[in-house]
């Protein structure tokens, strides 16, 4: 018997749930094969993973720490994809977000939290948006494919980050403390610049709550406003949009700036919630690849902002388990978005 795969003409509702679940199951199956091949018991490993990610003492708190950046980068990718723009630059925009928000936090050093924290958010969003506007501009005016340009700019952003801390005497670099003489580090932000958290048994970072707010905002924007409608028309059929007189170039710039601002907000949350200093260490922020995982999050969530929240939480848990168990960071990886 020969199996033929045919494309569906319409996508039934159950499929939008079945596909992500199916991909995850397939991923787990494949990893089980790897585990078996290297002489581990997959069932026991998965029990440990679940334990470490969601059930153990303090596991949920740590899972939220991992989920927060994925939430922002996932939303950033989802926002751009509504117009068929592939913003692979979430990683670099997140770096720029950390630079921008750290700058705001350092400038306003002595000020109280209610002034510093909004300034950090604004700084992060502005820097992320600015970096995203580079590929957006090239796409809008030279029709240069944004996938590769935004990808290449991630590396440039990473090198700029290294330069600011390791190879220059920039505003962000700490040149006074004793530890900075041994190994270059960024200046520490004031205590007022640390974002508050909510809850005690399970600590919810402010960034995660802001991320949920952003998800609601994106949904409203795309489902309830004229701007969102036009964006979707341009995404689905650029020609129809042109005949209807929609301004495509402006929309490209606006949507990419929005996407970059969300990723930059993720960078601000990294500074405000967790790191409290500009982290350029290749083994620090840059080792996690939150921007790249965010694209997988968005794809798994099928670009639905609310599903992004859920998937980011799930993958955050798996990443947490991966680092707890010293095992591979596997699960966030293998996810193919299969179209039935």
């Amino acid at each position: 018997m020969k199996v033929r795969i045919e494309r569906r003409l319409t996508q039934p509702r159950w499929l939008t749930v079945a596909v992500p679940v199916g991909s995850l199951t397939a991923a787990f199956g494949l990893i089980a094969v790897v585990l078996l091949a290297t002489g581990h018991n997959p069932a026991a490993t998965y029990r440990d993973v679940f334990e470490a990610a969601f059930a153990a003492n303090g596991a949920l708190t740590q899972t939220l720490v991992n989920a927060t950046p994925l939430l922002f980068t996932g939303l950033a990718a989802a926002a751009a994809f509504r117009m068929n723009l592939f913003n692979i630059g979430g990683e670099g925009q997140l770096y720029f977000g950390t630079i921008g928000s750290a700058a705001a936090g350092l400038l306003l050093a002595g000020q109280p939290g209610p002034i510093v924290i909004p300034a950090m958010i604004a700084g992060g969003m502005a820097a992320g948006a600015a970096w995203a506007l580079v590929p957006a501009f090239l796409r809008a005016f030279f029709s240069t494919n944004e996938i590769i340009t935004s990808l290449m700019l991630n590396y440039v952003a990473g090198l700029i980050l290294t330069y600011l801390i390791f190879d220059s005497h920039s505003y962000w670099r700490d040149s006074e403390s004793a530890s900075a003489a041994v190994f270059p580090v960024g200046k520490a932000l004031s205590d007022a610049a640390s974002w508050p958290t909510i809850g005690s048994s399970v600590v919810v970072p402010l960034g995660f709550l802001i991320g949920i707010g952003v998800a609601i905002g994106i949904w409203v924007l795309y489902a309830r406003t004229r701007f969102g409608f036009e964006v979707q028309v341009i995404g689905d059929s650029p020609r129809a949009a042109r005949y209807a007189g929609m301004r495509t170039r402006r929309k490209i710039l606006a949507v990419m700036a929005l996407s970059g601002a969300i990723a930059g907000l993720g960078g601000a949350s990294q500074i405000g919630d967790f790191r409290h200093t500009l982290d350029a260490d290749p083994k620090g922020l840059r080792a996690y690849g939150y921007g790249y995982t965010g694209i997988v999050v968005a794809a798994l969530a099928r670009y639905n902002p609310f599903a992004v929240v859920l998937v980011a939480f799930l993958l955050g848990g798996l990443q947490n388990a991966g680092s707890t168990l010293q095992g591979p960071d596997f699960p966030s990886g293998l996810v193919g978005r299969c179209r039935g």
Binding site: I88, A287, Y292, T293, I295, V296, G333, R337, C338, R339
Partner: peptide, 23 residues
């Protein structure tokens, strides 16, 4: 399966890359 080449490729790097299968 005709999945998105971009997503699949990125997922492959994450799955196999620096903090994944190779490590």
């Amino acid at each position: 399966l005709r999945a998105s080449q971009i997503v699949s490729g990125l997922a492959l790097t994450i799955f196999a890359g620096g903090a994944g299968l190779s490590s």
